[in-house]
Amino acid sequence: MITLVVALVVGASLFGVGLYGALSQTNLVMIMMGIELMLGAAMVNLVAFWRFLHPGAVSAQVFVLIVMTEMALEMAVGFGLATARFRARGSVEMEEATELRG
């Protein structure tokens, strides 16, 4: 039980650090790093639940694979946007991205 709780506490702490990073950074690539940390936290929780509660349920591992895929997709689309933004404005600072402001 203690190991499960330790893993969940680690997951929660990583999520908090990632949330801080995603909200506090002004650079697009740094914001993506925060999101990666939050997704990593989700994976820690999924593996902990699988290991300590339902090690026979392989679908939990499929769920982790999907989260890993999602991390790669987020990186690909994020870097595509970063490239477009850098071409258009010469920077990936999100403080300057105010075009969609109402």
Binding site: V5, L8, V9, G11, A12, S13, F15, G16, V17, L19, Y20, G21, L23, S24, Q25, T26, N27, M30, A41, E93, E95
Partner: peptide, 23 residues
Amino acid sequence: MTHQKRVSVAAGVTGALAGILLA
């Protein structure tokens, strides 16, 4: 290269504490 630091720290700490409580 940071902004809204206090809000971010508060959100991060709240998120982590909520997760720890749920654990």
